[in-house]
Design a protein around this nucleic acid. Sequence first.
DNA 1: CGTATTTGACCAGCGC
DNA 2: GCGCTGGTCAAATACG
Length: 313
Amino acid sequence: MDRTSAACTTSLTFDLNANPMHNPTDDQPPTSESERNDVGGERESSALNNEADDLIQELNRTKSENERLNDMLTIICRKYIELMQKQSVEELLSSKKRKHDEIESFDRSIGNSSFSHHCCNEWSPKEIKSNVSRVHVRIDPSDTSLVVKDGYHWRKYGQKVTRDNPSPRAYYKCSFAPSCPVKKKVQKSANDSSLLVATYEGQHNHHHPSTPGLSVSLPPGGVAGANPSPGSTPIGCSSSAATSLDFIDPIICSKMQSAIAATDNTTVQQFFVEQMASSLTRNPSFTAALAAAITGRILDDVSEDNSDSLSNS
DNA sequence: CGTATTTGACCAGCGC
DNA sequence: GCGCTGGTCAAATACG
């Protein structure tokens, strides 16, 4: 992906150029001692050349890794679209079956694919009508709590053992707003005990608790799907969300799916990267860690600079 | 003490 | 009509 390469290059450029304190000798005029000692200057320039070579090698490594990830993303996109089309056909064929039969077939298709969950089910006409979205979350198989963290406040009002699944199904209502009609069902997958299936019904009539300015008029299943909570790391629809739905941004999911449907892979990939980057920058943990890293780096350089100037004086 | 969760009872829909 | 099943209610209980 060109944009990631560009971003990578930009960050490295920043690392190389925007840190004048890293090597104080670069910008300083030659000291009287260095003018007197040409041998020491040659040593310093060779050391700088070595460092530059290392950085160039690192840049090349990063580029090649970026290309590799780009290829993987392309494959994932292709498989995702194929799965969506396949699932759409299956659900149309089984439209006369009972609800649990649909869920079972869906679980099977999910279990056989490389995706552990989906969101924003806009490709299913039935789900658009009923305003239902389904989300799969990978959890610890030993974890018996039927909790899917999506940032909303839920009140559990029932639990039932269903006929076709030994694990109980938990029923939740959105308790963030008293009049919110959204309900959620959470149950472990019959085929995979490490997979939690959350079914959302309805649409929130309030903004997300963690996004005060967010409009409520999002696509069906969008808000109901899942939203990042504060302190989480949203990573879009990644299947590696091993802990909870904290990592899923429904807006991203929605945009991703419309992008997949409407554009070619290159545009989709660019969109993915943009959304991932924006998700990371919106994550307080990430920004805090980034700020700490930058601050630490600058402070280190400042201390190095001070010690160098002290030793020079 | 207020709130959330648990759990048995009840109700409605569907198939036979 | 009856039984089965999923979904909901509400009293009891747990917890902070």
